[in-house]
Design a protein around this nucleic acid. Structure first.
Lengths: 230, 230
DNA sequence: CGTTCGCTTGAGGCCGTTCAAGCGACGTGG
DNA sequence: CCACGTCGCTTGAACGGCCTCAAGCGAACG
């Protein structure tokens, strides 16, 4: 495991000089978490943020009755909660390890100092925040204006763009989460997700083999994603 | 109307030097919009962002069937769509003038140059983005996990913190938008909002006089806001 | 005085949740 | 090797919150 390479792989840190990278490496701490271990809770003081070295981390909201909404699942090379260290002093959500994981913990104070030295780093962060804002605004739009099947269609389409494989039958993509987790990422529950998947199968938009989804009718899936009724 | 004062009032620009303020003033354009005029559409190329000089601007999402979700309503001194000029090239939502309005249009290219000169300005923007992310994450949480009445309660509580007046009867606050607009800010429709307000009135949590809401039972309102059933 | 507008109220229906049961795959222990 | 429990997922029935559609109502205004 070469930490320097890992840090440099993150788009945020692309612009840093060798020396600044070493600085980060110097101020950062490696922390290990077991599967299902809580990393932080909503409301906890945010004195730093995290970069995933290995494993999978779930960031989620919790309702008073215990229902979960998964904001994102992070893997190797991605940063978590970097926005929490500006303004406000607390984490706005929960984070939990889905698998045994190693995280790099980067303390707030030192990082802010680094930020003042490197205007490029600031710009990268601004760009990263702006992307996340975009992502959130899509989530808000979908939750308030669209049905579950439509959100599911969008999810599958995005998945296919990121990791889809062209095959004779259609575009094949692998689900890296359980149906339960997918449901909680779409703002619903597994029963409803199951029924939505069934609808898409019946309409021959997709087919499913274990944890693989094959897109059979891209156009149709896109029209559902954009809100047309099934 | 003193533009310099107005620009300086925005927390983003607090840190700028006199010279940098003049720079902004120099590169910026004043644009006027009539009531109900469209300022930009989702998907439009974002070559700059806006600062409200006067008037009220509604920023919203639109579903394919025409349903609206109001992300925010901006007034004097606030900036609009500044996140859109980083990453991605398009506006992620629509903007429309609710009243006759004057906006300051700040072109992207020149502003980015300014940003590189002023690390402080970058930090201010990061902080502002982080606040907006927080706001969005609350919206996502509420839309996915809470009922309309609960969201309404949170809205009233926030309103009371910003502009509430202590009176013998309770905390009094003024609604600056129509019920229709409020409904669309909460991700619902005016009929449902009307019923939710009725529930809160019946439970003696609030009372309503035209466009004024008086909080009669703060604790109760807080418990509803945090998700307990009515 | 009639029209429009913002808001409220009622009836009906739909989507999604809840609750309950069933199913195959898998691992464990008898 | 089989019985048994667990787990992830699916399916069905019933319920509930919210939306749709329609009507009513008071205030503002020409």
């Amino acid at each position: 495991m070469n930490l320097n390479v890992l840090i440099r792989e993150n788009p945020l840190f692309l612009s840093l000089t060798r020396k600044q990278l070493e600085n980060i490496n110097h101020i950062a701490l490696i922390k290990k978490y077991k599967k299902e271990e809580l990393i932080f809770s909503e409301g906890d003081l945010a004195k730093g943020f995290y970069l995933v070295i290995s494993g999978r981390i779930k960031v989620y909201k919790l309702s008073s009755s215990g229902k979960e909404f998964i904001l994102d699942i992070f893997t190797t090379g991605q940063t978590i909660a970097e926005a929490a260290i500006f303004s406000g002093e607390t984490f706005p959500a929960y984070a939990e390890a889905l698998t045994d994981s190693q995280l790099l913990y980067i303390p707030k104070a030192e990082f802010l100092r680094l930020l003042k030295e490197s205007p490029d780093l600031s710009l990268k962060m601004l760009s990263s925040f702006s992307q996340r804002l975009r992502k959130f605004s899509v989530a808000i739009e979908e939750l308030s204006l669209k049905e579950v099947t439509s959100r599911l269609a969008r999810y599958i389409l995005e998945l296919s763009k990121q990791s889809g494989l062209r095959t004779p039958k259609g575009i094949e993509c692998k689900l890296n989460l359980t149906k339960e987790q997918l449901a909680k990422s779409l703002g619903t529950i597994s029963e409803t997700l199951s029924r939505s998947l069934k609808k898409l199968k019946e309409k021959k938009a997709i087919s499913i083999q274990a944890n693989k989804i094959t897109i059979l009718n891209l156009k149709f899936l896109e029209s559902i994603s954009s809100g047309s009724k099934i």
